[in-house]
């Protein structure tokens, strides 16, 4: 169990948030011109860029007649973490992340619409401060929407952890780097909040099943909250319209 120090006696977390409070999310669609869709998302100090190319003809080895092939690549800038990373991608952790991203996005994209095609989703983490996977999924969703790819629903990801306040268990939403490093349980959920389905669930460290429901519902609530924020960003971007930025100079 994590120490009781994750919550102060006033019930505030290490960074001053309440247990059910997300970090500030700021996002922007259409940051780049060359990809078909792109988005930038900041979740607290975690900053992520996402770019989507496609759908385009699939490469020979990958092609599938069933539906579109979703190709994800997760890479972290060498200066994104406190300690310098030697390689931006290709290590085990980023390969695992790429697979997990693919899992989430395949669940959301209407794959049956584009047989023999491929969609590339590239994620670049510029700054990692906990919850990089969640920020990547959320940024990726925005980029997919910017690219105009049909989705079943928004796919949002959120983490949750658990701390003790006195003797009462209290779930924490949207875990930051400090809380992650403190070694508590970390439940990552990627879900389609409007349908209520879960696309990916990952749990690290041990969690007693008695508390599972509580932590899970907090994470799902986090996903629903994030969906509202993303939806507002999309609507604002569309309301801005193409008068402002999508003009093409010939």
């Amino acid at each position: 169990m994590p120490g009781p120090d994750l919550l102060s006696s006033q019930g505030l977390r290490l960074d001053g948030r309440r247990p059910n409070e997300l970090r500030r999310i700021r996002c922007k669609l259409g940051v780049f011109t060359q990809p078909d869709g792109s988005a930038y998302l900041e979740q607290g100090n975690t900053k992520v860029l996402a770019a989507v190319y496609g759908p385009h003809q699939a490469s020979k080895s990958k092609t599938s007649t069933e539906g579109v092939v979703v190709n994800c690549q997760y890479s972290m800038a060498t200066f994104s973490t406190g300690e310098r990373k030697n390689r931006p991608r290709g290590d085990r952790k980023s390969q695992e992340m790429s697979l997990h991203l693919r899992q989430s996005f395949t669940a959301a994209i209407k794959t049956e619409l584009y047989p023999r095609s491929q969609i590339d989703i590239y994620i670049e983490v510029l700054q990692a401060d906990g919850g990089a996977y969640c920020a990547s999924v959320n940024a990726g969703t925005l980029a997919l929407i910017d690219a105009g790819i049909p989705l079943k629903a928004y796919v949002c990801a959120c983490t949750a952890s658990m701390a003790w306040q006195g003797s009462e268990p209290e779930p924490l939403v949207d875990v930051g780097h400090v809380e992650e490093a403190a070694g508590g349980v970390c439940l990552t959920v990627s879900s389609l909040p409007s349908t209520g389905n879960v696309a990916l669930l990952e749990l690290s460290h041990k969690l007693h099943m008695d508390y599972y429901d509580m932590v899970m519902s907090r994470a799902m609530q986090g996903c629903r909250d994030i969906e509202v924020i993303l939806d507002r960003a999309v609507r604002e971007h569309l309301a801005e319209g193409w008068t402002k930025q999508d003009t093409i100079t010939i």
Binding site: Q34, P35, L49, A50, A51, Y53, Q73, T78, P88, G90
Partner: peptide, 13 residues
């Protein structure tokens, strides 16, 4: 580091 965000050609290595 040439990010794949720039162009899909940069994917992987």
């Amino acid at each position: 580091d040439c990010s794949a965000n720039a162009t899909p050609e940069f994917e992987g290595r």
